[in-house]
Nucleic acid binder design. Structure first.
Lengths: 199, 199, 199, 199
DNA sequence: AACTAATCGAGACGGTACGTCCGGTCTTGCA
DNA sequence: TGCAAGACCGGACGTACCGTCTCGATTAGTT
């Protein structure tokens, strides 16, 4: 049915996402308006809706999808690897656009939407693979027992991302030095699941 | 200035909060409308705004403020106390109305609003006192070193509430057995703050 | 179902219709925007749609329905009565709002709509009664034969309004002196249907 | 500047005008969309705008310009000539496309546009020449006095087209037998311009 | 018993954002 | 250069929601 036609203008794609991020940083998620995005981007609203079915999709694309996940090198220890992981999550969530958007997005998505699934795929599933590798390295180093005693990747994910969320969005604590404090703490939680190491 | 006039009808107070919870459970936070609450409660919108200045205040009152915080008994161990604390938070957040409202509320409140401060007072400050007592008990038992080496209450709060948020709202994992798994894990994190056990 | 509630504000009704007429006079029917009406009237769009289901209904109410039909006195002759009738139609159609709206309204209405029927009721049916009386007076004076030879009221209506439309909207001729010229002409058409009056 | 290049496809011209007429007949003037015309014609929108500067121009071309004006023979009497003229106008305006378009076009054109002038040229100026001839023939026959007493062509034009418009678009009367009734009536109006027959 | 004053359900109010649609222009690749 | 396809900007559409205001009708407490 669709043959060729005029192709989408890549500059328009970029302008939409840039404007979305700028407005998020300036006015927050609640102050983000489709008309404002269109005006700031210098485009028509139809150009937005041609690309993003809903406001949530657009914000997701601007804030979550665009962010490139960096490689996670082996730091030589479980605590170091976890510190690096926390650092990365903190970096993600403290950007001006992301910090304004994440909660609103999470709230709007709900448990059942298709976009909610994609959101979780990005924020959960994809991290889980990295965490799995991180844990395997710790087992090789002897820091953790081999499976099935080895801690669950899902649990580690919750232990890593959860406190970051709590610090940033519940307590609204500034994130300075957070990774360095959280990383070893979580490593401690994982290495001694059967009680404190007595002599 | 204010003499007497007709007193407020307590049944209206209850009807508003009940309707709010019912609609939250049925339609979620995004589907919650002031007109819908009024209709479902069989009252006028003015009666709502006479009691709650904004939609967020109303939801806060219906979901957060109403819930009575239980007493937290001494379970005899740090891990037990933490398990009980996690259990209570999980209970709070898994009710049909609360689970629908918390994220939306958190997003709408933002870092600066007065209601945001009250929300945090409920969810953070008030918990901090209990956590402080919980930690003191652990010091007395010899499970933790005395201050200043004793872990920070804010950190413990983040370690406790954070993973619960992560499981419920990021991973959308069912909360079965969560407290029993999380409690000891966090206790482990606190008892070995000086790094993993040596070789 | 509907009990009392706050009654509609009559000043809002008037503001809407006034704004409609002002914008019609300034920007024409094509330039008439619901947003512009709302802004000019200093009200919200919802207040308009609460009263008028469509733009056409609103224009109809502003331009057609409001106009009060004057009484039509007996001028003593068929030609005089017809001249007065033409004069009145010309007056109706040369107002700044009406002249801008009538054609657009007529076009938008179409043959089948309910509003089209109301439009015709105003512009046709209601005139027909007056024309009937006018013709009866002419029969009494002996200017016209009694029924069934007496001309049809529908035909007279078309002979009266048609040329006015043609002058105003097809030829765009200024309406100066139109009634004085058209009235006797139509009277002539009616009095000699069987050919010119020969001696 | 303009060289040659690929010549325009005459089948495209026809497809556009056919589609325009079909959609006008099916959906009316208000339902006529440029995209719909392009799709129905199986062509691109650019091909339309290469031929017609605006939607109005296109409709004008499809409905007004295409119609070829027939020759108007001498019927031997003023009433006969006028009947034939009315018949022709009725024929023009009762086609499914024309009847849907004329009012909308007239409304969109307004008094000042260039296309409005062309519309009037077709519907007024061009008829005026024929009416002039028609009147001259009547003068030769002795049915009318010679100029300057002879009726004005513009007036005759309004007397002829006006009632047809009124019957078709105001009253929405079926046009059966209209020319036969209107022709003699207008002839009567013209022959007795000095008032009703005395006693 | 009359008065006062705040409440009640109902719903209109101004403002603002939504997502859709259309007119007229521009840009692809193909012919 | 023409052509089909379709993206582009601008702007109006009619709907929905928030928080406020205004009715007439209660419902106490105060005179």
């Amino acid at each position: 049915m669709a043959t060729t036609g005029r192709p989408r203008d890549a500059r328009v794609d970029a302008a939409i996402l840039d404007a979305t991020r700028a407005i998020l940083a300036r006015d927050g998620y609640a102050g983000l308006t489709m008309d404002a995005v269109a005006e700031q981007a210098g485009i028509g609203k139809a150009a937005i809706y041609r690309r993003h079915a809903t406001k949530q999709e657009m914000v997701f694309a601007a804030v979550i999808h665009e962010a490139e996940l960096p490689v996670r090198p082996d730091t030589g220890s479980l605590a170091g690897d976890l510190t690096a992981l926390v650092q990365e999550i903190v970096d993600h969530l403290t950007g001006p656009a992301a910090s304004a958007a994440v909660l609103g997005l999470l709230a709007d998505l709900g448990p059942d939407s298709a976009l909610g699934a994609r959101f979780r795929e990005r924020f959960v599933t994809r991290e889980l693979a990295d965490i799995e590798a991180l844990l395997d390295r710790a087992v090789e180093r002897g820091e953790l027992p081999p499976p099935p005693s080895r801690p669950d990747a899902t649990t580690v994910h919750a232990l890593v991302t959860g406190p970051v969320f709590a610090f940033l969005y519940l307590q609204r604590t500034p994130p300075d030095g957070l990774p360095e404090r959280l990383g070893p703490l979580i490593a401690g939680a994982l290495t001694v699941t059967e009680g404190p190491p007595g002599p």
